[in-house]
Design a binder for these strands. Structure first.
Length: 588
RNA sequence: GGAGGCGUAGUUCAGUUGGUUAGAACGCCUGCCUGUCACGCAGGAGGUCGAGGGUUCGAGUCCCUUCGUCUCCGCCA
């Protein structure tokens, strides 16, 4: 039906007669001559309908926005004054001598390339929104990324294996999406949160290099970077160490950046220990483009009487940190109040600060509402340990460690971006040496930091009393402050796996019910193995600088997990439920 | 489960202290127009102010409930 895409037509086809198809972006009717901007994913081409061909002209008069048309005509160069510099095809136009309307369109609910359209409109009429050049770009980039990933792994001897979507519910982790079984009354499948156990079993099955672009499902609340169904690059290998996986991933991202973003410079991958990350940044996904860091000042304050600090000085679970903001004296009272307010959602009670207008004049050069509670010596120590210069501002946070960490890591991010402190670069950071367990604040039970199949660094540690001190062979990859992937070396020994389940508080019966198949499989010659998984949607979002992973998906869901295009989820017929032996509760 | 923002024409939005007939831009329709490119000009149509309730002589505006959407907290091994 066509020889070229719209924007493929250029001066190289000058005076040739070509055929192309597309959507009508705009029509400009001058009475005597009609211009049509014809659009496809490549761009826009101006076509000209002259009145001398009455048949064509009358068709052109009936054409409206988003009509699908086919045109044949001669590629003509535009006169000097008529060149449009904003179009890649702006030096030429096609003079039509055949024009066919392939399909009509209702008047569109919004202009296709108007980027002000509200998202609910875009999602309801997603087929219109997908014609937008940005969505075309995003989804085509995503496709190229997946193609590159597949080739990368195929080239290195990896096997792409599909794992079930209908599978078994797993305890811990996220809430499962459940699918009722018709044949097995009162039993349910679960959609996979990840192919974790299947890929481990593939290792036992002798596929020593596996990968998959896998759909995963988690029934949890949504965020800009979280959807109920999302796509992971899932990788697993046998007979490898942590280093092998890390080097492989670094190679993958180097190629992605070179081939897809045309970034040729060698990517640096920082490595940070989990404990250091928490101490310096208050979180396990720091953005190392940001120069702001936390400094512990508990020791300096050990003799202070000021209650805000003294309450926490001798509390093991508390943390007291300083955050120096270079040039922060320019911050207004209003913005400091804003920052103080913004960290209250993490449970922080307040945000003390001192302005170091002149560090050589403690009397007049240091200004702070809390100055009267702090001795000169301590002030000097604080200035020294933070290496504060004149015009810097120092924030203080004293509270339970988790509150300090959450609020201050938020503040680091917020101020870093407000004051434009971030370096303009891509920052990859591996976080390693994670704890194996974390204590759930509500249930007071230990849960896995990564997942229950993660290998401890030393098996003997499992017998120690200090469970929270046990380190794991887990690793996360962080890009510009976003967790894009994580993995671990897995447990390949049945006894070790059993021990972990026990430490997690599972009894024999639960272990049997939930993980019998895994433990059995471990009994039949499981090779040492490990792997990693990456969030494809998140990677596309970051690489393209998008505000949400919804813009990386053709058909995403809203924050309340509904699809505005199809109106899913929806009620089902009673017959369907009966067949599944399901009765709904009338919740009011 | 919680906090906050938004919801007014097809779309994006304005709407003052509660006050007469709810506006703009774009889009749409009709007419004019042979070089525009967000064409232009003239005219026109188009509103359950998300829904329900309340206060009031009077509600787009105030109050309550509710729905939708977005951001965040909790949650997300």
């Amino acid at each position: 039906m066509k020889d070229y895409f719209c924007a493929e037509i250029s001066e190289s086809q000058l005076n040739k007669t070509i055929t192309t198809c597309g959507w009508v972006a705009t029509r400009r009717d001058h009475g005597g001559v009609i211009f049509i901007d014809l659009r496809d994913h490549t761009g826009i081409l101006q076509i000209v309908c002259n009145p001398d061909n009455k048949k064509i002209f009358s068709i052109a008069e009936r054409i409206r926005s988003e009509y699908v048309i086919q045109i044949t005509g001669k590629v003509t160069s535009r006169k000097k004054g008529a060149v449009n510099k904003d179009l890649s095809t702006g030096t030429i136009e096609v003079v039509v001598d055949k024009l066919e309307i392939l399909n009509h369109s209702k008047n569109p609910p919004f202009k296709v390339n108007d980027d002000e359209t509200n998202e609910d409109q875009r999602l309801q009429y997603r087929y219109m929104d997908l014609r937008n050049f940005n969505m075309q770009k995003n989804l085509r980039f995503r496709s190229n990324l997946i193609k590159l990933i597949r080739n990368f792994f195929y080239d290195r001897g990896f096997i792409d294996i599909e794992t079930p979507i209908l599978t078994k519910t797993t305890p811990e982790g996220a809430r499962d999406y459940l699918v009722p079984s018709r044949i097995h009354t009162e039993k349910f499948f679960a959609l996979p949160q990840s192919p974790q156990l299947f890929k481990q079993i593939l290792m036992i099955g002798g596929f020593d290099k596996y990968f998959q672009i896998a759909k995963c499902f988690r029934d949890e609340d949504l965020r800009a970077d979280r959807q109920p169904e999302f796509t992971q690059l899932d990788v697993e290998m046998s007979f490898i160490e942590q280093q092998n996986i890390m080097r492989l991933c670094e190679e993958l991202f180097s190629i992605i950046f070179k081939d897809l973003l045309n970034i040729k410079t060698k990517l640096e991958f920082d490595i940070l220990e989990y404990n250091d990350a928490m101490n310096e940044y208050g979180c396990d996904k720091p953005d190392l483009r940001n120069p702001l860091k936390l400094i512990d000042i508990k020791k300096i304050l050990k003799n202070i009487e000021f209650k805000v600090f003294s309450d926490h000085v001798n509390n093991k679970n508390s943390r007291i940190t300083a955050l120096k903001i270079p040039g922060g004296c320019t911050l207004t009272r209003k913005s400091i109040d804003d920052y103080t307010d913004s960290i209250k959602k993490f449970g922080a009670k307040g945000l003390a600060y001192i302005k170091c207008e002149n560090i050589n004049d403690i009397e007049k050069g240091i200004i702070s509402p809390i100055k009267k509670y702090i001795s000169k010596d301590i002030l000097q120590d604080i200035i020294k340990i933070t290496d504060a210069q004149s015009s810097d501002l120092i924030f203080f946070s004293a509270d339970k460690a988790c509150i300090v960490n959450e609020s201050m890591s938020y503040l680091i991010q917020r101020i870093g971006s407000d004051l434009r402190l971030l370096k303009d670069e891509w920052s990859f950071t591996w976080i390693v040496n994670y704890p194996l367990f974390k204590l759930d604040a509500q249930t007071k039970k230990y849960t896995s930091m990564h997942h229950p199949f993660t290998s401890p660094q030393n098996i003997e540690d499992l017998d120690s009393e200090q469970i929270s001190e046990i380190k794991s062979k887990a690793y996360d990859l962080v890009l510009n402050g976003n967790e894009i992937g994580g993995g671990s070396i897995r447990i390949h020994n049945k006894d070790v796996q059993n021990k972990i389940f026990k430490l997690l508080g599972l009894n024999d019966k639960e272990i049997q019910n939930k993980f019998d198949f895994l433990l059995n499989a471990l009994d039949y010659g499981c090779p040492p193995h490990g792997g990693i998984a990456f969030g494809i949607d998140r990677i596309v979002m970051l690489l393209l600088g998008l505000p949400s992973i919804r813009d990386t998906m053709a058909f995403p869901k809203t924050q309340s997990s509904s699809c505005l295009l199809t109106q899913a989820p929806s009620h089902v017929d009673k017959e369907q439920l009966t067949e599944l032996s399901i009765k709904t509760l009338n919740k009011k």
